[in-house]
């Protein structure tokens, strides 16, 4: 088989230049700078740098707050991914049925994805805030966001809800691609609906589940700080302080530039590591058509 080729061997590179330039300017260079800065002590105003070796990393790993925030983020991410995927699959299966007005339901369940995290946070604040939250009014419990045992729970629900639309869209698409012939054959062989779902539908859904797992992990680690900023500011007493929120504070509010760079490098490695682990372990169980 003859592979197509360009007459001018330089042409492909010329065509790549615009993309490459954008990547370098907006991605590679800042990333490289961040990694470099993590080895420096940086003046908060002038930006003057002093080489400090692994000083910042040492500080991070001897900070008990950082370590507890590390575990908290892990628990947060795992919970958001598991609850998020289970619930959105459940909703997607319901939405995949034929019923009157289904299109309407679908649009309503998908639109939360179009909201920014800050707006989603404002909506949950409307429900749960201690002064005049709706849920507080009806349950008589005001402390949803001001008690450290429930605040994280509310953040998790908000984070799951916010990403529900995204997950549902993917699951719905995948559900429509499950071949009806296989399901019918199983039904004829006497498999009940539960068995049919787990043995057949779920197998066909595994690639998308895997994809969503990776995407939701990234979401839980990187995209939730807007929610936290609006709802709890990391409190009460640090109980909703996850790594990305701490990073945001350390860089943008506390101007600890070198320290924040080291934090972001760790966060980056962590998420890369988790994703690779997911590829290593879970992907083997994925069934591609």
């Amino acid at each position: 088989m003859k592979s197509s080729s360009f007459k001018n061997p330089l042409l492909p590179y010329v065509l790549l230049i615009p993309t490459f330039l954008i990547l370098v300017v907006f991605l590679f260079y800042p990333a490289f700078e961040t990694f470099r800065l993590s080895l420096f002590k940086v003046h908060p105003y002038s930006g003057a740098e002093r080489f400090a070796g692994f000083y910042n990393f040492k500080k991070i790993f001897t900070n008990p707050e950082y370590l507890s925030s590390f575990w908290r983020s892990l628990v947060f991410a795992v919970t958001v991914v598991i609850i998020g995927l289970m619930f959105s699959l459940f909703v997607a299966v319901l939405l995949n049925q034929k019923a009157r007005g289904m299109k309407l339901y679908r649009s309503f369940l998908i639109w939360p994805y179009a909201l920014s995290p800050a707006i989603a946070g404002a909506l949950f604040n409307f429900l749960f805030n201690p002064a005049n939250g709706l849920i507080g009014y009806f349950t008589g419990v005001r402390t949803w966001l001001t008690d450290s045992s429930t605040a994280m729970f509310i953040i998790i629900i908000a984070a799951v809800w916010k990403n529900l639309g995204y997950n549902i869209v993917f699951y719905l698409t995948a559900l429509r691609n499950v071949p009806t012939s296989a399901l019918e054959a199983a039904a004829i062989d006497g498999a009940g609906p539960v068995r049919r779902f787990f043995s057949i539908t779920f197998t066909y859904l595994s690639p998308i589940t895997f994809f969503l797992m990776v995407m939701n992990t990234t979401y839980a680690y990187f995209a939730c700080f807007g929610l936290i900023d609006v709802l709890t500011e990391g409190g009460p007493a640090g109980s909703t302080q996850i790594l990305i929120y701490q990073l945001y504070k350390d860089f943008f509010v506390h101007s600890k530039i070198g320290y924040a760079a080291a934090e972001s490098l760790i966060l980056f490695l962590l998420v890369v590591g988790i994703t690779m682990l997911q590829f290593q372990t879970t992907e083997k169980k994925v069934h591609y058509q």
Partner: peptide, 17 residues
């Protein structure tokens, strides 16, 4: 004392209502 958490709207709302 009612703990209304951080931010500048909850305490105003609690007083207003």
């Amino acid at each position: 004392f009612l703990d209304v958490g951080p931010g500048w709207s909850n305490h105003r709302a609690a007083f207003g209502s």
